[in-house]
Design a binder for these strands. Structure first.
Lengths: 215, 215
DNA sequence: TATTGTGAATTTTTTCACAGCC
DNA sequence: GGCTGTGAAAAAATTCACAATA
């Protein structure tokens, strides 16, 4: 049975999906420390979750534990990776070579997780042709050509809000169907395109609200 | 009736709270464009939500609309701002003057929303004492003193994962109870401290999964 | 007529308790 | 004895339909 079919049939809750990468992160750390087996309670504690939640989440993928013992760290990590399509390197483009785009471009964490930043774009003639470490800043006019050539699968948008929808439309037109958007705007995209939004100010606003309650 | 009491009594869903800043963003834009009244459907469309959802969310705050007409843009914006405690400037500190910390420090969007970056810390002697635009990089050894002096209410952590928990513990010790964490680690903090986590790799991993499904 | 506000229905998510298994 | 897997219960969130009303 294909992965997609299985997912659609079993209907794994979205809330469970977005916790899987967190579990995976700690499983990989445990593996590096040479730990072979871990209980749901221990792993959940690391991941900021709880035992029953974690067991439920994993139960949607299948049966991976051993009763009375726990989960085989490597086996589980491997399965989550392949389930989420993370067992191969993926090419990522960054749109916008401003401060944020540049910082993201240099972020080491992406490569560690198999995301290769293979091209960065800008429309500023002063930036185009310059380097960010080893990477040349490309003219956004060459967007289509570069995306195709470099086989880009995911785009990160770090552009001003005023340009974001326009650029997103182009990305969609050129066949991109996964966008991580840092511009403070709700992108409108077709159903077959997925976006995730990181709005830095919104995060502070949410904190601002909850911190008063938590007191 | 005090704001906190009201919130706790009425039990506004957390999911509704985190949508309020998005509504607020578009209300402010509308106000700037000189639009005085907006319907739930129109505002929801802008915000990437839907009419009933938006009306339900707002209904937890009170009755702000006029049947047959819509919502008064300025009045609603003002109420959401004050409800979320966003009607006064708040002081923010950034911990870590690496690429990300520096980029965040220069991000204009915070100031627009009333968050003033008033101090940035690092432990690298090569960075301490240098400037990021107008802001001096402070020695992390002076963390307690600076946080108190500058009346910091929210901290943004842009430090390596290995240091994050250690620094978070200090922040809590020094009275900070709101942390925006960019380090890829699940912070352990007391109940009276709120955190929000932005994990860049996790976002790409989630996209990686859903993009296959969306196809 | 147009649009809000909301109780009720539905769906999704989380929690719980314990049978099942090593 | 210890820990998983899961059905059932509970809680949270979303959707819906429509009464209320400017």
């Amino acid at each position: 049975m294909g992965r997609e079919k299985k997912i659609k049939e079993k209907k794994i809750p979205q809330a469970a999906i977005i916790r899987l990468p967190i579990y995976l992160r700690y499983l990989n750390e445990l593996a590096q420390e040479g730990i072979n087996v871990i209980s749901s309670n221990e792993l959940a504690e690391l991941a900021g979750s709880n035992g029953p939640q974690l067991r439920k989440d994993l139960s949607y993928l299948g049966e991976f534990g051993t009763r009375g013992v726990g989960y085989d760290v490597e086996r589980l990590a491997h399965y989550i990776s392949s389930f989420m399509g993370l067992n191969k390197e993926q090419s990522v483009a960054i749109i916008g070579a401003g401060k944020l785009g540049t910082a993201l471009c240099r972020y080491k964490g992406f490569a560690e997780k198999g995301f290769k930043i293979c091209v960065i774009f800008d429309d500023d003639p002063n930036k185009i042709g310059k380097n960010i470490d080893d990477l040349l800043i490309e003219d956004i006019k060459n967007l289509e050509k570069e995306l195709k050539e470099k086989n880009v699968e995911i785009c990160i948008m770090a552009v001003p809000a005023s340009q974001a929808q326009n650029i997103a439309d182009k990305l969609v037109l050129y066949g991109i169907n996964a966008i991580l958007n840092f511009a403070p705007i709700s992108l409108k995209v077709p159903e077959n395109v997925v976006t995730r939004q990181i709005d830095l100010s919104v995060e502070l606003q949410i904190l601002s609200f909850f911190k008063v309650l938590a007191q």
